[in-house]
Every structure is written in C-alpha cells, then in structure tokens.
Write a protein that binds this DNA or RNA. Structure first.
Lengths: 332, 332
DNA sequence: ACATTTCGTGACAACGTTGTCTCATCGTTA
DNA sequence: TAACGATGAGACAACGTTGTCACGAAATGT
C-alpha cells in the first residue's frame, strides 16, 4: 500500500479510502490511485485489515466434513458455498475421517485462522470440548448429527421419520419378514434410523423380535457379506432396509450375486447416482443435502450477524423415492 | 496475548516464545504461561503472526474446482488435502461453474487472503490474466487442463492416449462402425480425447469420415437424445465411445431404453461408482483423481519451498478397466 | 578475583491495514 | 470583511504478533 501511495503521490490513508470505496476522495485523486494500484498489481491484504478493524471479521468460515470426497458431504459443501459466497465468505474445508483427534486439531487450526464461524459434523462422542470456543462467541452450526454436551444450532435429516416411512412402505406391500442392515450404532444417525424403522414395524403389529437386525456395517464389503449370510439362511427376510449408502451397495451386490434382486425388496437410506439405472431401480429414502447446506449457511450467517436466540435443531424432511426395488411383493 | 502475559506475570514476548516452542524459556516460566493460556483459552492468531513474520506464509492455499460437488473434483480435493494437511496447510475450496468471471473473482478473493499458493482448473479460454500474480511469485499449479497464455506447472490425465486406448480396444473386438460422443470442443480435455480416439482409429485403418462424431453434449439429457437419434438411424454404430461421465450416463440410458445395452459396445471416459453393477458392467478409461491431487499438492509444495525450475506438465496415465460393455462384439 | 560466556527475559519496532483526529483550503453567508 | 461549514487529505496510533536487540544474573573460565 505504501508503494501505491508513493507512486500516486498521496498519503497511505487515501489509498485505503480508495480501495475501500470510502467517500471523501476527489475523482482526480481517486483515478490516480486506481491507476497506480493497477500498475503495481496491488491488492488489499484482508488479514491486515481485519486485524485493525474492530469486530475482526475475516470473511472465512471452517467446514468440517466426514470427507470432502463423500458425495453427500460435498453436496452440502456446495450448497453452503453458494449461500456464503454471496457475502464474499470463503470456505475452509477439511475431512475428519471419523477421527476425534483430527476433529480437535482441525477446530484448533480454524480457530487459529480466526474464522468467523464453523459448520461441523460432530464425530466424537461428545463435543463439550468446543464449549470454550462456542461461548467465546464463535458461531457454530452442527450438521447431520446433533451435538452432545453443548447447546448449539444443528441441521439434521428426520432420520427416524424417514426410516419409519421405509418401514411403512415395506409393510404396506405385505412384508412381514424384514431385516435391518445398519452402520455402527455409535453413530447417532444410525441409531435414529434403526429406532424409527423398528418402532414403525412395532406399530404395524410386527414383533420387533422377528426383525433381523445387523449393525456395525461400515463398508460395502462387510454389508455384502452380512447380506449374503442372512439371505442364505433358513428363513430369509423378504424385505431389507439398509440404513446408509455403502450398506445399500453391499446389499445390492449380495442380491445380484444370489440372483435375488427381483425377489427380495430393498429400500435404502440415502439417494445415489444411477439408482434408477439398476435393475430394478432402487427405492430410497432420499436426504436433501442441498437443503441441509443452505439452511446451515443461513443459520450461521444469522449467528454471525448477531442472532442470539436459543439454539435450535432444524429438521430437513427426507423423501421416499419409489423406483421398483421397494415395491417388490413378498415371495416365500 | 497481552492478557496471558499479564496473568502469567511475564513479558508478552515470553508468551510468544512459549506458544511457538522457541527455546530460551525456563521450565518454570513455561509452565506458568501454559497454565495461563489454558485458563484464558488462548490461541495464537496466525494472521497477525504471518503479518509480522518475514516470508509471510499463511499456511493456506486456494483450490478452484469446476464444482466441489463433482465427484472427480472432490476426489482431487481430498488427495490434495491429505498431502497438504501433513504440513498444516488449510485449503480454501471454491466452485467455478464454468464461469470465467467467477474464476477471476475467486482468484482475487484468494489473493486478498494471501494464500501461499493456488491449485486451479482453468476454464477461461486464456489464463494470461493471472500472469501478474504468477510472476509476483505466487505458486500455482493447474490441474485437469493445461493453462493457455501462461507458463506454469500442470497436472493432467493422458487424455489422448486414454481415448486411443479405448479406440484400440473397440477395434480389437472387431468394430468398424464407431461413434464418438463428446463434450463441447471448447474444453481442452474434450478436444484431446476426440483427437486421440480418431487418430487411433485412423491408424487402425478406419477412415475417420466413417466415424460418427457428435459433440457439444454437456449433460445427461442431451447425450441421451443424441444417442437415441444415432442408434435409431439406418446404419447405427456397433460401438460407442463417450468422452465424459455425464455423456456416458446419457448413452447408457438411451441403450437401456432401446434394449440395446447388450448389443452395442460402450466405453466411457471416467470411472464412476456402481459401474460394475450395471448390466453389462461398463468398461471405462479410468482417470486417477487421487494421483492428480497428490501430484498437484507435491508440485505446489515444491514451488512454495522455492523450487524455481522451468514449469512442467505432469501426465497421469489413465487406465482401461474391462467390465463387459466394451467387449461386446459387433452385431449387424 | 575478575573477565567472559550463557541464559532467561523484556522493551521496542515493524508487518499492512484502518479509525480518529487534525489541518489546510475553498466557497458561502451574515 | 469576518466567521463558518464543507471538503479533501495526511499524521498517527493501534490491531496481535514476532524479529532484533539489550540487559541483568548466573555460570564458567582464567
């Protein structure tokens, strides 16, 4: 900036005024400054600015996702970006990989960069460790899962209700022998989905004890093996609900291997690309990552702008998408 | 920091020393400072630090992608993050949406945040506008496409060679009536793929004029319609090469609608999830986004560390993955 | 015993900005 | 003509750090 000032033959503060479009600069001076700044290819240093400026906004926020490469996460990321970029806010994105240590380290890294706020997917059992930051007035919005041990805004899918819809759908097509394949119950969303599914079956008069429940499935392969085992048993289920993308893929593979794709009904939680190109198309409970991301961004902006209402959890409804696999009738 | 110093009853510089693990502080003082900093929940302000520090590293870089939600992009993103996070470098990610204006605006936004370097997917016809920044010594690595009008490192896939491999594969299975379905030739990668495909056919003795070439396909629907039209013509091709993910999806849909999935061979550029679950599995030329991301990160780090060798383009080889659709024999 | 080195520590300026204040100039009004 | 407000511009301090230097005390060497 000093250089620009020197070149334009004005004071440093005048350059600041021009760069920030502040009033009180004559058009002639203004042009001279702009000319000089272009010539020197000068650009304001935001960091230095926000250092001095009161309020100290850095116009950047931190985003913590299970993985930036995960399609569900990256759609949330995209929606957040779209909403925030309108305000000129840049997004630091990072992947957690289910590692609570990483979670803490990344929170610290973002804090050190003085982000204006954070959006995070909690993974540790307890998020109380961020209380100091949170009460220090750093806006935070949790997504996908509600935080434990801390009062903060959260944006989540109606996991239980969505799973219940899947249950009702399958029962409505006459199924009475059902199976639940799920992720580890360590994860809040997985617990909710199981609960919603089983409770709805209970209400439909299907004893929970007759439902085959298999949990702890974290990837395609484990889900595939689990499904193969159950489907080859004496009394295999006529319908399966899988609580998550990768689990759904595993079950699909098992069904295909056994040639049972058209015999055993399947409803998966989470939509995915090409689901309609499968044979049959896969019926799913779709989440709406765009809406989650957008809502999270809006809440974060509101908090940044000073909204200090009581923290709330916002629920984004899921949606049943009928494609064929969930409408197969029971065959014994 | 002043507060911590006051609480610990030491000078401000001593706190700085402790926070930065600098030597020359007695263990007793050190403990007092740590205690005080914990009590006040204090965290170093990186921005202020790098303001003073010579060299001015901010430990953050900018990443410009077509879209953070695009699976190919987000895998690159992930690989970059993994390599950079080892050095404590945070990543600003942003989506371009094929908009050259956005590209410029985002570059400016990152510059204002004084990133240590940038990784970008060029979209404008010409990247000369970043020359001032680049020569200002800001490390830059281009990915996916080579930059035009500027000398800089680039990491790309062997588009032409990959497409040629697809051509050779189809010809090797006896096809002589082929079609090329591609994205707009505005895009460098699309041009390269077309060139590689056609040149290889030429070398195999198939006159280029007999190859049906359809370009300008930007989404699933336009590709589907184009494929439907060609496949319903008098002399439909017996094999199709699609130059990109979305185009491949469109062709797949058309083939399925016409019940021709097992009759017309298909090789797509770009791998995708569940490609092996299709019927038949889709043979593809797979790119390696993880390797592109990793290599780009390594090049960027090298540049940040002062490597001033001549800019180079690094080519990451693609790979033919055989799954069935590309091995169908011609049927007339 | 004194000179010299080492160690722990703090004062101070500077990094690139911006908020506050002051000042000179000029045109207007009583 | 004197007083005044408006306008354009710069001097200066401060933001939270860290590099440089200086200083006193203890440890070491002669």
């Amino acid at each position: 900036m000093r250089h620009v000032a020197a070149l334009a033959g004005v004071g440093i503060k005048t350059v600041s005024r021009v760069m920030n479009d502040e009033p009180g600069v004559s058009e002639a001076t203004r042009q001279r400054v702009l000319q000089a700044s272009r010539q020197l290819n000068y650009q304001l240093d935001m960091a230095a600015g926000s250092l001095r400026r009161s309020g100290r906004q850095t116009l950047s926020i931190g985003l913590l996702l299970p993985s930036v490469a995960n399609p569900f996460s990256s759609e949330i990321h995209r929606a957040l970006e779209d909403t925030l970029s309108e305000r000129g806010i840049a997004v630091f994105a990072a992947s957690l990989d289910d590692d609570p240590e990483r979670e803490k380290a990344l929170v610290a890294a973002f804090l050190g960069r003085r982000v204006d706020g954070m959006v995070l997917t909690p993974i540790g059992r307890n998020q109380a460790y961020v209380i100091p930051e949170h009460s220090r007035d750093l806006p935070m919005v949790f997504i996908d899962r509600e935080p434990v041990g801390i009062e903060a805004d959260a944006v989540v899918t109606d996991n239980a209700a969505g799973a219940a819809r899947a249950a009702a759908h399958l029962v409505g097509h006459g199924h009475t022998r059902l199976a639940y394949f799920g992720d580890t119950p360590e994860i809040q969303t997985a617990r909710e989905r199981r609960r919603g599914f089983l409770e709805q079956l209970g209400q439909a008069g299907i004893p929970t004890s007759t439902v085959y429940v298999r949990e702890g499935l974290r990837d395609v392969e484990s889900a595939r093996l689990a499904a193969l085992a159950v489907l080859s048993s004496d009394e295999p289920p006529t319908a399966i609900f899988s609580s998550q993308n990768l689990v759904t893929f595993g079950v699909m593979r098992a069904l295909k291997e056994l040639g049972a794709s058209r015999r055993v009904a399947l409803v998966g939680f989470d939509d995915f690309a090409l689901s309609d190109m499968m044979d049959p198309g896969i019926t799913v409970i779709a989440q709406h990552p765009e809406r989650i991301g957008k809502l999270a961004a809006e809440r974060l902006l509101a908090r940044i702008d000073g909204d200090d209402g009581a923290p709330r959890t916002y629920v984004v409804p899921s949606e049943l998408i009928v494609r064929g696999s969930g409408e197969l009738l029971p065959s014994y």
